[in-house]
Design a protein around this nucleic acid. Structure first.
Lengths: 324, 324
DNA sequence: TTGTATGCGTTATCAC
DNA sequence: GTGATAACGCATACAA
């Protein structure tokens, strides 16, 4: 391994001068610069990032923490990584599998100086446990959290959920089933609020509490929901899911059961992820790419002390044939 | 920031003794160990990875290079990252977007000591350009390559393709269309060989060259293939795709066109990825998780000078309702 | 069992 | 403009 010292010897200068050339800082005369560049070239000199990192105290690396990496993660991850690379930042992956301790290990990496900042895609620990890590560096997430310490690119699912329900009404769906996420999730709470308001606005519609599911229930997969629907006597004529994949699973199972979408049952998803196009799912596009951009830009601005203006995120209905 | 020097002062010992405690190497008496641990705790000492990395010359990080991260990548990525983390290794992502120069930048990271090893998921440069990087550290891939310098976990797609075609024959499909990947890809070459042998074995079947597509053609997406099929006069009664996602796109478009799968047209995929279950796709499971395991274990064994025995990878037909 | 001295490769701070 | 020297924080031969 050749170092700046080797280059310095070969070029007959001091290592500080070589460093100036390598890092392109400070004054070096044309003459000596060329001498040094020639020596660097001949020796095949390669700067050592490890030494640079130690010196600067920075790694130019951001941790991306998630339970796992599946089709649900990939849109976001792809956008995030692309943006990061464009800004000369690396993205380090940490799969926690939903394990709280592993998640804390991952969060600890920032204080060990292994990474400069953290993005949280999914988490198991409470925000109260996570927020203290802020003192070691910036943290962002796409989940809904109201904290001055952690940036969140969340979209208001109250609005989009109301929009989805009103849309179903225009398509003449009268009784609607609701498949919601984790009950403690703020998005879920916002959706429940929207749902209640929706029924307040439309007293003619009946709210069927048997068809409001939260993730904590036994019916976790879309396939379970489909089976439940098929075997029920009182059944809604439309189902709204909190995420596309579960909706896609449901459609898939409905096909096996010979139930027609959207004639027998209308289905709506959320996210406009790749799979939604495959299964013709009506859904809401919440522009994950833009969210990823905002999440990275926040971290970047914190690290470089730039000011940060998030891009506006709209929520747009994407109408496909899973609804009438 | 507190360092081992601070701890040493507080505990009244030398920094080397502290280092021994921190890194858990060498002899330290119970007594002084406790003194040091107490001091570490009181000062809230945190070891600095940057310094450790410089000292060891290692980052415990592996680069994962891919054109992008989509549903196609996620199974592999997930398995790879999980395995890596279990062995205390980090995974760094490099999205190249198919750009040759960006890919070379990513490969260069190993010589800059930014990563210890490299896994290549997708590539743009020729192997000849990639192989020289081997001298900076181990490289593995899941693509088919026969080189002593790069480990490959590839499965023999000649066998699996022949298996797929023979299976279709048992289901009474007589004329088969073939959708293949990049023409320079070794997997594609293996598939073409299998295809030719298949027609040699079964002279009663006619080989329709109009229905053998390689990726370089204009028909890139599954939707294009579906439209082409719908508008053709001479059409095969089954299509075999080189990857599930394109097959899923095709099924999706066929549904829009009112064409029945498997009655009007049988469809087969390859990979057994998540999407295949959603769209009821008959496919081949080539155990990506095991391949990812092998790819990581190879790199790990090279870095730690262990011996490496890859796990056997079988290819299993997964029969769903996209075929009769 | 512990301390001393030196190295890892680079950058920053001074003089000159 | 350039060069000596000291950081950066830790690890490790070697001496004691």
């Amino acid at each position: 391994m050749t170092t700046i010292i080797d280059v310095a010897k070969k070029a007959g200068v001091s290592k500080s001068t070589v460093s100036r050339v390598v890092s392109n800082k400070g004054y070096v005369s044309q003459e000596t610069r060329q001498k040094i560049e020639k020596a660097m070239h001949e020796l095949g000199y390669i700067p050592n990032m490890l030494a640079r990192n130690l010196q600067s105290g920075l790694t130019k690396t951001i941790a991306f923490i998630s339970h796992d990496f599946n089709q649900h993660t990939s849109i976001f991850l792809n956008a995030f990584t692309k943006t990061a690379l464009n800004h000369d930042f690396y993205v380090n992956l940490y799969v926690t599998g939903g394990d709280k301790d592993k998640e804390l290990d991952a969060l600890n990496l920032m204080k060990y100086k292994q990474v400069d900042a953290i993005f949280i895609f999914t988490r198991s620990n409470s925000w109260d446990k996570i927020i203290p890590f802020k003192k070691f560096g910036p943290i962002s997430t796409w989940h809904r959290i109201d904290s001055p310490d952690i940036y969140s690119s969340y979209v208001n699912q109250y609005e989009s959920y109301l929009m989805s329900l009103e849309f179903l009404l225009t398509r003449d769906y009268q009784s609607i089933g609701h498949i919601l996420g984790d009950e403690n999730n703020k998005n879920t709470i916002a959706r429940i609020k929207a749902l209640n308001h929706f029924y307040d606005y439309h007293p003619e519609l009946k709210k069927d509490c048997d068809w409001i599911f939260v993730n904590s229930s036994h019916l976790n997969t879309g396939r379970d929901i489909a089976k439940k629907w098929a075997s029920s006597i009182h059944k809604p004529d439309a189902l709204v899911f909190y995420t596309d994949f579960i909706a896609a699973e449901c459609i898939s199972e409905l096909q096996l059961l010979g139930i027609k979408v959207p004639e027998d049952l209308g289905i709506m998803g959320f996210d406009n992820s790749t799979i939604s196009e495959i299964v013709h799912l009506t859904t809401v596009d919440c522009h994950l790419e833009t969210q990823a951009l905002n999440c990275f830009n926040y971290l970047h601005s914190q690290l470089k002390q730039l000011d940060f203006k998030p891009k506006d995120i709209t929520q747009d209905l994407v109408i496909r044939s899973s609804t009438k």
